[in-house]
Computed example of a mutant assay.
Amino acid sequence: MGRLMSEVAIVGVGWSGFRSITPDLSFREMMFEAAAMAYADAGIHPRRDLDGLVTAEEDFHEGIAISDEYVPDQMGAVLKSVHTIAGDGLQALAAGVMQIAAGAARILAVESHSKASNIQNLPQITALAMDPIFQRPLDAHPLFIAGLEMRRYLEATRTSLEHVARVVVKNRRNAMRNPRAAFPADLTVEDVLRSEPLAEPLTRLMAAEPADGCVVIVLARGDIARSLTDRAIWIRGIGWATDSYTLEGRDWEGARYLRRAAEIAYQQAGIRSPRRAFDLVEIDDTFAYKELQHLEALGLCRPGEAGWWTAEGATEIGGELPVNPSGGCLGEGHLLDASGLARLLEAVLQLRGEAGPRQIPHAGTALVASWRGLPTATGAVAVLSREP
């Protein structure tokens, strides 16, 4: 895939929730709040200006079939086209970018949300995504996949458990500067290592807790973006990829899905040296080892270096390359399929200089990467810039 066919920019963002539980809000009310904020931020009216919606939803998480039917009303876009992505929010962003780049739309809204607190049996729901013939009959908790992959990653890269724990310490501490974060904490490496085991060597504090939240992003064609705002954030490259759907056939140590997605996004953006190309990175850290694995898959450091890089402070807010200044999924909470849009939201706020006490000075470029989560091997990457 070559360069984008036309300029596409983010002109508005909105959010709601970002709490461990939201008994005061239905998922429809969260969507309405996030959409109203995004439209006001972009300076548009949905009925007059929107050409359509793209939503990332999973029927199993929603507890209803054809869940996209519940999108138009609260998004203020009845009778508009709706494109549903059964995947992560960053994949929905890619679908919106392609529609605008191809000339099929001028202004689109991209939405995804989580009402994880409504799901009483989330592990069992997740297990339904496993192979129905060879894996699901084992009735195993899906976290065993994370434990196996973490063990393989640690052995292949000679990364220590202490390095993984430092990711948790960093991200939960970053979350203390983020008013959206549901799980800020001042932890020590010992706290993380001594927390109860989930799937050895994974401990409880190394895994992000689920949270409720909604994120809405407004996209616009380049000329329209310039007419709407002087704070547009430009999408210079975007890619996504899937490794083998089977556990037996996938890459267990190198996150091949994200490496391929990054190659596509870098090619579009004209990036040859990713380590020197970005001012900050927001990437998936559903499990703490994933942040290290993803840093290496993105080409930001060599295999086996991410742990040492983290231990030396290079990924801190004041370090060489700040990683997850928002607190990531570990700090903000895991928003199911909205997790990728949560990472994107922070990158946009950083590039607009609106990140408050966690602001990265003079941030001009950002890298955003998502993973759809267990048991998948699917990821997406977006390259963002303050300048077109």
Results as ranks from 00 to 15, higher is better:
L219Y: 02
R158A: 15
D230L: 10
A208C: 15
R204P: 04
Q124N: 14
R136N: 08
M75R: 08
N178W: 06
G213T: 06
I10W: 01
V97Q: 06
S112G: 02
V54I: 13
T376M: 15
E263V: 08
E291G: 09
V13A: 06
S385H: 09
A175P: 05
A95C: 15
R352Y: 02
G87H: 07
R372N: 10
V11P: 00
V381I: 10
M130D: 15
N324H: 05
A40S: 12
G299S: 06
R221T: 11
A116M: 04
I66D: 15
E291Y: 07
R47E: 15
E58H: 11
S20L: 14
M1F: 04
A363K: 09
P123S: 05
S227L: 14
P375S: 05
I224A: 15
R256N: 10
A262D: 05
Q99N: 12
F183E: 00
K115M: 09
A129C: 08
D212R: 06
L280W: 07
A146C: 10
A261N: 07
A355F: 00
I66Y: 15
A269D: 01
A34F: 02
I360S: 00
I133P: 07
R3D: 13
T246H: 12
A232E: 01
A311G: 08
A211Q: 01
E282C: 12
Q74I: 08
L351C: 00
D223N: 13
L187P: 06
M30P: 05
L187S: 06
A199I: 07
L344P: 00
A261F: 04
E316A: 07
V218Y: 07
S16V: 03
A208G: 11
V11S: 03
H294R: 08
R166L: 09
G364R: 06
E320W: 13
A129H: 13
E209T: 11
S117M: 09
L367M: 06
A265N: 13
P325F: 02
I283Y: 05
V323C: 04
S195W: 04
